[in-house]
Amino acid sequence: MTLYRHALNRALDEELANDDNVVIIGEEVAEYDGAYKVTEGLWKKWGDKRVVDAPISEAGFIGMGIGASMLGVRPVMELMFFSFAYVAFDQMINNAACVRYMSGGLINCPIVVRGPANGGTNVGATHSHTPENLFANMPGLKVVVPSTARDAYGLMKSAIRDNDPVYFMENTLLYGDPAAASELPEEEFTLPIGSAEVKRSGTDVSLIAHGRSVLVALEAAKQLKEEKGVDAEVVDLRSIRPLDEETILNSVVKTNRAVLVDENKPFCGVSAQIAATIQQEAFDDLDAPVLRVTSIDAPAIYSPPLEKEQIPNVGRVVEKVMQLG
């Protein structure tokens, strides 16, 4: 079994080998081996030119990566926490997302910005943001949030080869989680960005989630089956934009019920978009309103037992499903 962090590491290593234009830049990615060890060993293997330690200057170095990508370099930029994207927001939105459009298609930005975007580790409000909804709100950007090692591997390779900016959101709790580990084949493969996956099939209700919430949904599905006799299907979005609406709708048409599990804050969170799609496209197939389990609507609390309750957890998902009646 390959851990999530090692799957990412392998994808990065292979893409460094596959394309001389790929360069990894970020804080502590080289000599320190990455704050979360995702880039471990890469600097030793590939050297100073390909794996570069950046000072704490997110607006500067992320913007630099975007600029270099306009010239055909393929930077894979690490944000130690995706929360630090807020320091580089202007670059990531005004430049990366808009330059292709504003140039009438003359310029493109094949950049990947990656890093963990999650709560649940008691690092407080400034370090626990889940900005997938913010970035997915901006046409021109792609947003990927894998929940397993296999998906992380296949999607990272596609992200690096993609000619548009891809913001790739990982999770510090998944890096070493055996539940997120996968069996990876020897040979290289990629997974297309924009395809969801049914991670568990069921008949009674669709749990639709992304990132670590998929694992929460799977655990909840197990409990629902064992304790309540409810057979839940779990759909993993994997990519937020582009969004695989077909897989979502197929599932809802089959189960006639949907509970969306989403670590975003509720207001205009990813699940709000999914809910809009479902009611528009599958209204006649619904036997109940679409319900959501999101983070409790406040900045991330530090207090460890409270933060467990603030983000979606198994108990809250089970309870929400039972509310469907």
């Binding site: 929360s83 690092v123 407080g124 409000a125 400034t126």
Partner: peptide
């Protein structure tokens, strides 16, 4: 208990934190 180690504040003592970024 909302801020944690990085976010101590005491405006009554002219202490404005404690900032994580």
């Amino acid at each position: 208990g909302k801020g944690g180690s990085m976010h101590f504040f005491a405006p009554d003592k002219n202490y404005w934190g404690g900032h994580g970024i």
